[in-house]
Design a protein around this nucleic acid. Structure first.
Lengths: 124, 124
DNA sequence: GTAAAACCTGACATTGACGTCAGAGGCAAG
DNA sequence: CTTGCCTCTGACGTCAATGTCAGGTTTTAC
């Protein structure tokens, strides 16, 4: 499949796909004329890349881990990094949970006030 | 307290504190000579700002919410935005949980292989 | 065969949250 | 008074993940 099709299939821009290649996250084959050609498996790979980006991993980090999330060969070195990254994500989750709770309390508080007729924000 | 002290107290750089002021997140008073002067309450405020940044909120979003997380006056308008942001954070948490699970499976898999003597990554 | 659509490379532009540097002024200690 | 540290403003630099544009080639559709 060509780059435009892959873009359509994944919802990722053509520019982004070329960027992923630049970052070595993708290695499409080339037609004689130089056009990129992707396998069907690329769709899943791109989606996974997107998910990792969404989790806050950088392209460098993704590059280090992606091969090991697809195959099974893991050095203890990489295992360490995987665990470190897991910890980082864990902390981020905790921080987000705390922030969410804080938002929840703010919202609950606001609703309560609203129900009481509450503090008018447009007070004279 | 002066800017350097606040920086030391919060672990945030002096540059960042000036940036926060630029974004209207802080409004220190000024000494006659123009030096910034912060109240003790600024410490907590800066820490909260940091937490919201860490949760992925932009300075604009923080600016909208911060007053309402400290006082109690909330318009239905802002309430809507609070809920929207809560939803966004919720989705981000889900994505992170999924990624963490994925990492966990990868790690577990790797450990299993390792215990079996497994695939040697430095194979001749 | 020709035009439209898709593709190529290369390069500069953007956004956010700062870092960093220059040049100048402010302030407590000896 | 001067030394040294802190602070000021202003401005340019950075980094990551793209967007966008220019100028040219290739593929597809009629």
């Amino acid at each position: 499949m060509r780059i435009g099709e892959l873009a359509a299939a994944t919802g990722v821009s053509v520019r982004a796909l070329r960027y992923y290649e630049e970052q070595k996250l993708l290695s499409p084959t080339r037609s004689p004329s130089g056009q990129r050609h992707y396998s069907d498996a690329s769709v899943a790979r791109v989606l996974q890349i997107q998910q990792l980006y969404a989790a806050g991993l950088s392209s460098k980090t993704i590059l280090r881990f992606l091969p090991y999330m697809e195959s099974n060969e893991v050095t203890t070195e990489v295992l360490h990094r995987l665990r470190a990254e897991r910890e980082r994500i864990d902390k981020q989750i905790s921080a987000l949970l705390e922030t969410r709770d804080r938002l929840d309390r703010t919202i609950a508080n606001a609703v309560e006030i609203e129900e009481q007729g509450g503090v008018c924000p447009h007070w004279p």
